[in-house]
């Protein structure tokens, strides 16, 4: 996933994309794909929490099989665990490859205005905002630029990127890429 990219390799890898999909690469994604990706990530987090619960239960069982009973973590604690795990997961994913499992499934990538992978701080702030106030994501519906409120505040973007390569920030370009405005219809 994080294989180093070389200049000029990105267009070559796009050759394998279907024709219509090539034209949307790099454009900001809409609300449907982003919500779907978020849902997938939430499922991943739930699965993770479930896995942790299973592991914890298994550990208890191994320690005292006679007195075993499923632990009861409590609803709030479980919710906090889910949200915390989700935040950590999103932060690490966006800061390293720019994409979570849900992003990868739906062909999205989180980049900054220059098309590079965002830093750890921005990734954490963005993940926290999205996890605690998921409603801010829906600003995308109204925004003419397909930007959510965290995107506006942190100057990030979620773009279509169907290629399987690692983070775009790996490209050794010192200057930001030129932003090409598509024709207004």
């Amino acid at each position: 996933m994080t294989s180093p990219s070389r200049p000029g390799r990105d267009p070559v890898s796009r050759i394998v994309l279907p024709g219509p999909a090539r034209s949307v690469q790099g454009h900001r994604a809409g609300i449907v794909t982003r919500v779907a990706a978020g849902a997938v990530d939430l499922v991943v987090a739930l699965l993770g929490v479930a896995l942790m619960y299973a592991a914890w239960s298994g550990t208890i069982f191994l320690l005292g099989p006679q007195s075993f009973h499923f632990p009861d973590p409590g609803g709030l604690r479980l919710l906090l665990l889910v949200l915390g795990l989700l935040t950590a997961y999103l932060t690490v994913a966006w800061a390293t490859t720019g994409r979570t499992f849900g992003n990868r499934l739906l062909g999205l990538r989180v980049v900054d205005d220059g098309g590079r992978t965002i830093g750890l701080t921005r990734a954490f702030l963005r993940a926290a905002a999205c996890v605690m106030f998921p409603i801010v994501l829906f600003w995308v519906v109204v925004s003419r630029e397909n930007r959510s409120l965290p995107d506006l505040l942190l100057r990030t973007s979620v773009v279509y990127d169907w290629t399987s390569k690692g983070g775009r920030g790996d490209e050794p370009t010192s200057t930001p890429r030129a932003i090409v405005l598509p024709p207004e219809d």
Binding site: G19, H27, D113, G115, V159, I179, V180
Partner: peptide, 13 residues
């Protein structure tokens, strides 16, 4: 379909 953008094109930026 033939259009291959050299990089991420951010609409309406």
């Amino acid at each position: 379909a033939t259009e291959i953008a050299p990089g991420p094109v951010i609409p309406g930026s």
